[in-house]
Structures are given as C-alpha cells and as structure tokens.
Amino acid sequence: MAGRPPRTVATEGVVLRRRPAGDADAILVLLTPGEGRVDAVARGVRKPQSKLRGHVEPVTRSRFLLAHGRSLDVVAQAESVDAYLGIKANLDALAAAIYCCELAERFAAERSPQPDLYLLLVDVLDALARGVNPALAARYFELHLLAVCGFELQVAACASCGAELPEADALFSAASGGLLCAACRVEVPGRLLSVRAQKVLRYARRAGVDAFCGVRVPAETAEEVRAALGEAVRAVLDAEPRSARFFETLPPS
C-alpha cells in the first residue's frame, strides 16, 4: 500500500517572484531543485514584524519548510542562505538577476524536479553577486537555460544537416534550433551572425560562467548575440519576457 505523501517538505529554493495576496500575505514563486517551480503562500509576510519577511524577498536563496495546502503550499519556515547583497547593490546586476529569475519561472515545470536549471540559476546569481558583466551573465543564462530545458541551440555545426560550419557568416534561425550552413538556409527566415558572434556563442556553451563573463566582447558582437538569443527565448515562450525591456534600456551609470 502506497504511503501518504509527507505533509511538509524541506527544500532549498530561490525566490523568483513575490506578489501580494490578501491584506498581509504574499504568494511566492520558488524554484527548487527537487520540486521544480512551486507556488507557496507566505502568511503575514507583508507586516513589518513578520519574521519571514527578509528571507522570502525575490532574488534570495533560502531554506524552506513547505506545508502542503489544498491548492498552494504554505511557507512554514524560511531561512536565507544567500541574500545576494552584491546583486542588490548594483542596478545592472539586479536587472539581470530579475530577468534571469523571470526566465526561470517561465521555463520551469511545476512540481517536476529541475536540478540542472536550479544549479544554473544559482551559478549565474552567484556570479552576478561577485560582480561579473551582467549582460554577458544574462546571455550565458539564456543559452544554458534553453539547453537544460530541452531547447538546446546548435551553435557548433549546422542545426539541420550537422555539417561543420565554415569560417563565415552563418544564418541563425530560432525556429530551426541554431546556426544553419549555406545549403540548409535557403528560404529559412533568420539573422546572419558574424564569425565573432558565433565564436562567442560556442565559448558560452563550453565555458563556465566566470570565464565567459570575463571575455571582452565588442558592443556590436554583443548586440548580435543578444538579438539572436532573445529571438530563441521568444520563440520558445511565444512572448517577450516582461523584464527584458527594463534590463536592456537602463541608462548608463
């Protein structure tokens, strides 16, 4: 006879979003390694005397004790593991972190283990808190997010025929799943990517986040990569991420 599911679950998680509910409650959207995306109610968290308050801010990694409720889980306990103070003191890093959290929320499956996605998000948030280039960190996250969620872009060879790509401009087609060789790109909509932009994508795919974010990428190439990855993300979501505009249009510091 199958046992009853446990009434509480202890898990680590990143708070992706928090929205107000009722007079003093909030609904948290969490990304956890073992349960995927979880929506949970934090009771009384908007009152100044709430003990949970600071532990459930968005862009915070915390340990949670979640009690299974009828429709939503309830946060019984929370203790922050990393509040990412380095991110919250820098507007560009914060905008990048908010963007990554939104993408994680939109891509993550509910109640389904997502250890790779969780590790990726924590890896990128850690790097942002250490002060890496926020724009490159976001590109790294987009590319690896697509891969861990089953939409891996082919950037090393032709996405259609698998042929090696010559050292020349190549067509990037989000619908076809990556770069296309000259023979396969006939009548396929997409954007031409320079050799340099292709190399940036390949390096992002194989390097760690710190190594990739340490690369000096000319503004023109960075824009090519941003547009291509943005298109790939939109193709999967079928919508523009809400925080993208804020992140991309911040005034210079």
Binding site: P48, Q49, K51, R53, G54, H55, E57, T60, S80, D82, A83, L85, K88
Partner: peptide, 16 residues
Amino acid sequence: LPSGADLEYADTMTLA
C-alpha cells in the same frame, strides 16, 4: 532592525 524585532530571526540583508 525594526523596534521590537528579534535578532535571532533577522535575515542577512536586514542585519547587514
């Protein structure tokens, strides 16, 4: 820390 708060329950951000 708000008045009447309990240091034991304070989060990293608030303490910092």
